[in-house]
Simulated assay, not measured.
Amino acid sequence: MDVLSDVLAAMRAGQPYAGRSTCSAPWGVRFPASDAACCHIVLQGGCSLIPAGGAPVPMGVGDILFTGPQHAHTLSDQPDSPAVDFQPNRGSGYSVVELNIPGRGATTEMLCVCYTFDLARPHPLLDTLPPEIHLPARVGNHSALRTTVDMLGTELHQPRSGTNAILPALIDMLLLHVLRAWLDEHADHTTGWATALTDPAIATTLHHIHHQFEKPWTVEELAKRAGISRATFAKRFTAAVGQPPLTYLTWWRMTTAARLLHNTDTPIHTIAQRSGYRSEYAFSKAFKREYGIPPNQYRRQRPATATQRWIPQTMAT
């Protein structure tokens, strides 16, 4: 996998859910601050984003809105329309949520996806994302993203054999394409993850760290692989990623180890070796320093694996 795919895997927590909404004026839906990032796509009609602070942002057909976790917002046909809280009755595993608000006015249809992030240990990329990313519909812009939206909308509207497997993949694709679009628009910034993923030297370093994190990397060796001097490399990496190279290496090792502890039964001594530690004791000490508890206790606290399935649900007012 590439670095952006790795980052997405590191941020993921729980299962995403998606749905179509049909709302007739007057209407409004409040999305509370939570650990979920949301994507809203206008399929028909129009609405306004009402952020927690700031002026309303009008949205038309084809517009895509990404809202980061912990950012409350409201969507409505008019800023002063009455609003209901978005509180879907979610079941275990994947779910499809249908939201219908009847009314006598113009109808707006939307596609909405919510994606839960691990905020207890968020990836540094989250810190650089704005509260809202608005991608207006423009002919020729982000064609792969538009294709993904069409495919996701079709699967939600007409579920068929294989939908259970296709939907999670499409939700991942949607988020990746939104992040790509934002990164492309900010590629000329001098710092931040938009630079980290487009700067050949830093992107090469991240690739080595993500895919060979068991190696005893030094700043000198990473700088050599990046093709720049040690001092220049350390400064550029820290500015782009938000952490010094070896600090990020340790962060990635522990994040990957935690996923293995939660999601697999791999022996701890094997995880230690894969994480670049010569002994289970050294690994356990480093893990406890990061998470506050030893790896065996962390594993015992892992949640029971839920059966992944799509549960059609309705939230009507």
Rank of each mutant, 00 (worst) to 15 (best):
F233K: 01
D118C: 03
K215F: 00
V219L: 05
T190D: 01
P168W: 08
L183W: 11
L206W: 04
T204N: 06
I228Y: 04
L175H: 14
L119F: 12
D150Y: 03
H208G: 02
T154Q: 12
T128Y: 13
L197V: 10
H142F: 15
H207C: 06
W182Y: 15
R230M: 12
T190E: 03
L170M: 11
N141M: 15
K235L: 05
P168Q: 04
T218H: 13
P122W: 03
P124I: 10
F233L: 13
L179P: 01
D118P: 00
A187C: 10
P200M: 13
D172K: 14
H142E: 14
V149Y: 04
E220I: 11
P159H: 04
E214P: 00
T238V: 06
P244T: 13
A144E: 11
M173I: 02
G227A: 09
T154P: 02
L206A: 08
P159N: 01
K235T: 02
K215Q: 03
D184C: 11
D199Y: 04
A240T: 07
P216I: 07
L174D: 04
H189I: 08
L156T: 12
P131M: 01
W182T: 04
I209G: 02
T205H: 02
N164Q: 14
D199L: 06
T128I: 13
A234K: 12
V241Y: 07
R160N: 06
R160D: 01
G153C: 11
R160C: 04
E132D: 10
V178A: 10
A187Q: 07
A196Q: 03
A181G: 06
D118I: 05
N141I: 13
I133Y: 15
H186F: 13
V178W: 07
G162N: 04
L176W: 07
A231F: 10
H186A: 09
T163V: 09
L170W: 11
L206K: 06
L222G: 03
H207K: 10
V149K: 09
I228G: 03
T163D: 02
T154F: 13
H208S: 02
S143V: 14
H157Y: 15
P159M: 02
H208T: 05
